[in-house]
Design a binder for these strands. Structure first.
Length: 208
DNA sequence: CTACCGATATTCT
DNA sequence: GAATATCGGTAGA
């Protein structure tokens, strides 16, 4: 891993996350410039997969920085994170959205029907556009297959917006989502909502 | 544009 | 059994 990437990813996750805005993640011919990320602070963060300790799914988060943590959710989607902090500290940055800056034809093939703007607009869409799934879990971001190219300097703070994370109930108030202001590829904000259970639906629709 | 909802594996209670 | 770091399709304003 380049010294620059290693030094960056060893910093506290709340410093790393905004500094990844504008960085480029490459997988083969496809490259995405990151426009939206979220910080997850391991054992200190009730919203983190690592909050209750190590499991088979989250074990990569507990390893060294500079690797990709990929998880499978909702029975059909993949999402990916950059593991950061020193080994043993299970913090990570969820890659929520980006702009496809190379290999758009390949990304289109993986995201049939999507407009350019929507190719990587959302964490599962970003994974799909880059062709990332569980077989990439734990892979190094220092190449050759996967390469994370950080900016030499963080984007100006005036271009960065922050707000609550998306889709979380625990610790939803923490403003740990970071995005580039005004970028069209930033995902639509959807607050977590408690959905009715099937039983409640049945009770409401019971005619009797 | 917003709102809702189904699909569905893994983890948690 | 229920919740979940989501998305795409549909309906309606």
């Amino acid at each position: 891993m380049s010294d620059r990437l290693d030094l960056l990813l060893r910093r506290p996750v709340l410093e790393v996350a905004p500094r990844l805005l504008g960085a480029v993640l490459r997988h083969g011919e496809v490259a995405v410039r990151l426009t939206e990320v979220e910080a997850y602070d391991g054992a200190n963060d009730p919203g983190s997969h690592a909050y209750r300790g190590q499991t088979p799914r989250n074990s990569v988060m507990f390893g060294p920085p500079g690797h990709l943590y990929v998880y499978f959710t909702y029975g059909m989607h993949h999402c990916c994170n950059v593991v950061c902090g020193p080994e043993g500290v299970a913090s990570a940055v969820l890659l929520r959205a980006g702009e496809v800056v190379a290999g758009a034809d390949i990304a289109q093939g993986r995201r049939l029907g999507a407009t350019d703007r929507d190719l990587a607009r959302g964490p599962a869409r970003l994974c799909s556009a880059l062709g990332l799934d569980l077989t990439y879990n734990g892979l190094s971001l220092a190449g050759p297959e996967l390469l994370l190219e950080p900016r030499s300097r963080a984007v100006s703070a005036s271009l960065v917006s922050t707000g609550p994370r998306v889709g979380l109930r625990p610790a939803a108030e923490r403003p740990w989502r970071f995005w580039l202001s005004g970028e069209p590829t930033v995902s639509a904000y959807r607050p977590a909502v408690a959905r009715r259970t099937r039983r409640q639906v049945d009770a409401l629709t019971d005619t009797r």
